[in-house]
Design a protein around this nucleic acid. Structure first.
Lengths: 234, 234
DNA sequence: AAGGTAATCTTACGGCGTAAGGTCTATGAG
DNA sequence: CTCATAGACCTTACGCCGTAAGATTACCTT
């Protein structure tokens, strides 16, 4: 009984830190969604009272900011090894995977103004991969903006679709189609019936189609003035 | 004094309806942001008590859903008149303009699963313009997804930039550059110093660059199998 | 044993969305 | 003119939220 110091009921609880707070917040958000991420529930999960968290973190905003950086840390960094195109393709796929795994993250990204270290590291690696591939500074900026806009926007749409499984899709789409005033939205109806309701359809497949669309265009722009490096050094 | 019915202080207040509620909510969100949109503040603006709103609207969620549809109603519908490309370009620009005008709207789009009438009308018109331009159903779906992903994602990034004016940009970027551990993020630093900090830079300019990137690719895909209509009717 | 300090807890406040039920007021029937 | 009805609005209250202020505990140093 070297350490009988454990008081009443707690069995020498491990101390909480900024890191354990963020880890618990990540778990909680993954398990129950962003709206369930409250200081009191987070404290419960940490075996602590809500106000104790404030010793390690200035306020809830800081937790959300930290969470976004944790998410960025999960994204595969691009390497320039096999060329900018496969590097960017893999990164895009990885980004989407991570953002879908943490569905609450995309909603935290707007209104969050201070990037964390992992975020900066990620951005730096992306720009570096474009530069190594021969893009000029401006070209890399264009490419970065276009690609990331597409990725974030796709996830944003994907996560707000009115269904999750293809059974739900069928249900919802049939509802839209049948209860529409006849012929009011003919093209929407046509697409639902002749495309989205077909067996095996999944919106997720659209991701790589649009991704390759953008990558193709970037490849074509690269040799153009304003996009590629004027002179390859050495 | 034909109508002396006005009680105490109120001067025969106009009755509130679902429409006036939504209009007031739009004003409030525009003026003070999404977090300021509370039932009590909204009631104040309507000259009414908070609970009275619930006579016209089932809950706050319904207000948010209605707001998103109001925003969609502001977006220019594409017309197939001058071809799908300029139609889609104008629509994209209009969409971004509207979403920037109502900065809170993009944050409401995720987690909102039931499209309103204006939203459906918009989507129908977009698909219609692609179809009229010769895209197959699948091709129109690809094009729609890619383009809208880009638009929403761009606005999402644009609105979460850590600055609003170019003075703020200078300030923030200089902060990042100078306080970085020397050389930890060389490409980020290079882009800040050699691009984003140059006089006259504005991220907003990137929008049309990326937009044309996608439109170019779509134009190239159109004749390809799986994108264009197999046989033009008649 | 005493004191200091880091970590946690208690209490409280104002604001949130909204459930439940009460109160006006215009209208139209008798 | 009276009065029941029903629509529009209000009052009160509940449980939840983020967090300010200050008290309390646990442990280390001397």
């Amino acid at each position: 009984m070297a350490e009988h110091s454990r008081a009443r009921s707690t069995t020498k609880r491990a101390p909480i830190t900024r890191e354990t707070v963020l880890a618990a917040a990540l778990e909680l958000a993954d398990a129950e969604g962003a709206t369930a991420l409250t200081m009191r529930k987070l404290a419960d999960r940490l075996g602590v009272e809500a106000m104790s968290i404030y010793y390690h973190v200035p306020n809830k905003e800081a937790i959300l900011t930290g969470l976004v950086d944790l998410v960025f840390a999960e994204i595969e960094l691009p390497t320039a090894e096999h060329g900018w195109r496969p590097a960017m393709r893999d990164r895009a796929v990885s980004t989407r995977t991570v953002l879908v795994r943490h569905r609450w993250a995309i909603g935290l990204m707007d209104s969050r103004r201070d990037p964390g270290l992992a975020t900066l590291r990620h951005h730096d690696a992306v720009i570096g991969a474009f530069r190594a591939g021969g893009f000029s500074i401006a070209g890399a900026a264009h490419a970065f903006s276009a690609l990331d806009s597409y990725i974030y926007g796709f996830v944003l749409q994907e996560l707000s679709l009115p269904f999750e499984s293809s059974e739900e899709l069928t249900e919802v789409a049939e509802g839209i189609v049948t209860e529409m005033p006849t012929g009011e939205f003919p093209h929407l109806t046509e697409m639902a019936v002749g495309h989205a309701l077909l067996p095996g359809y999944s919106y997720a497949n659209e991701f790589e189609i649009g991704l390759d669309l953008i990558l193709d265009s970037l490849e074509q722009r690269l040799p153009l003035p304003g996009w590629g490096e004027k002179a390859i050094s050495r």
